[in-house]
């Protein structure tokens, strides 16, 4: 049954990649990228159960953290134009 779950996750990732290739604006691509990252986390979880190696769950949490921080950093970069060095917020 893990085969079904992982296959459907792979199909969803393929659909997200199609949108990332087609996407007319940058934000469509970023949205597809975000979805791809979430699906990767779920895929690692399912693969961990399918192969019986539960160490992979740590990698899943790490990947979701990196996905979130990378997404926020990317959007901040696109909005301000820098990673906050000389942005709107004054340094203490």
């Amino acid at each position: 049954m893990f085969v079904v779950a992982s296959l459907s996750i792979l199909i969803t990732m393929a659909l997200a990649l199609i949108r990332a290739m087609m996407g007319p604006t940058v934000f469509d691509r970023v949205l597809a990228l975000n979805m791809f990252g979430t699906k990767t986390v779920l895929f690692i979880c399912v693969y961990c159960f399918a192969s019986g190696r539960t160490d992979f769950l740590d990698l899943a949490l790490l990947y979701s953290l990196m996905n979130f921080i990378g997404m926020v950093a990317l959007l901040r970069f696109s909005q301000i134009g820098s990673f906050g060095d000389n942005g709107q917020e004054a340094r203490p």
């Binding site: 996750i9 969803t12 997200a16």
Partner: peptide, 25 residues
């Protein structure tokens, strides 16, 4: 597991099928 797979594929179809960015979200 099957329900989750179904909903994730539905979301994948939606992200390809819906017409503009804000509805794709």
């Amino acid at each position: 597991l099957v329900l989750g797979s179904l909903f994730s594929i539905i979301g994948g179809i939606g992200i390809v099928r819906l017409p503009e960015f804000f509805s794709r979200m």
